[in-house]
Design a protein around this nucleic acid. Structure first.
Lengths: 154, 154
DNA sequence: CAGGACTAGTTGACGCGTCAACCACCTCCT
DNA sequence: AGGAGGTGGTTGACGCGTCAACTAGTCCTG
């Protein structure tokens, strides 16, 4: 151990910096603007979107798997959303532990109102910045990084 | 108003999804692994890195500008770091409101220990996934998105 | 059918980020 | 000098994410 620390080359460093800066600014702006325009956080948005897309009624764990979140995170999120009336929890008759998460009418309304706003922001901040080729290239690169990470168990 | 919601094309949607998934997984893993290996959060890391890089003593606002954070965020962060002994606050003689943020010896030690760990994770999760050309392409794309966002005031 | 292993979901503590309100001090203008 | 307005920094409330510990119900196996 105590191997020589292998620093990044200037090009690698610069690429990492650019990526991080971009990603932070992009996500930050998108979050704030969606929140400001629709009274929904990005977390609310994705949960409600996936939930309604799947019929509006799902077990918590399934929902968590669908959006690739830990169940604890989903539980907290659903708790907050329930408090705001976007979803409701129902007991599961088949499994005494289980909980169904159900999109309320208010929740359905909220997502339908938020979706176009969300798309518009994504377009304006991100899609419009790039040519179709660049967009495609970025997708391929993203998939490569994803695949590379998925090979690592930890 | 009530313009037709212009949805994304399937390619655009797919590109956005890939990017989002990648970015979330990457940042998530990096945060957790850096935190686990070095007892420092990414926020601690960047603040301490920039601070020591600049001599280890800086006004809060300048530090905030350096890392492109709001002063409130920096104030909270510095408060937490001070509680853990990584930095200290000193009054500024020239300006009664001012505060100097100073890296403590413990802080310097922490960053020196964390830096190689951090680099190693960045390399393993990200740099190693891509060829130098891809890395370069990604950097260019990131810069384009950044530049595009910077043209928008809001 | 008893017990252990496993799974569903919750909870609490903590760090982090944002927003808005808020002092305290400084500057500048008259 | 005095007051308006700007700046440096803090604070508190809230939403979010993680981790670890926990409850309670289910399943499996002897």
């Amino acid at each position: 151990m105590d191997a020589p620390p292998r620093w990044l080359t200037p090009e690698q460093q610069a690429a990492w910096d650019s990526f991080i800066r971009m990603q932070e600014k992009l996500i930050g702006r998108l979050s704030r603007q969606v929140q400001a325009d629709s009274r929904m956080s990005p977390a609310d948005y994705i949960v409600l979107a996936k939930l309604t897309e799947a019929g509006g009624r799902m077990r918590l764990t399934d929902l968590a798997k669908l959006v690739e979140w830990e169940k604890s995170r989903m539980s907290h999120q659903v708790g907050r959303m329930a408090k705001r009336g976007l979803v409701a929890k129902e007991d599961c008759p088949d499994d005494g532990r289980g909980a169904f998460i159900v999109a309320t009418p208010a929740g359905r309304e909220a997502i339908e109102e938020a979706a176009p706003v969300h798309v518009e922001h994504v377009r304006r901040l991100f899609v419009d910045a790039l040519t179709p080729e660049e967009l495609d290239t970025l997708a391929r690169i993203s998939d490569r990084v994803l695949a590379h990470m998925e090979k690592q168990h930890y």
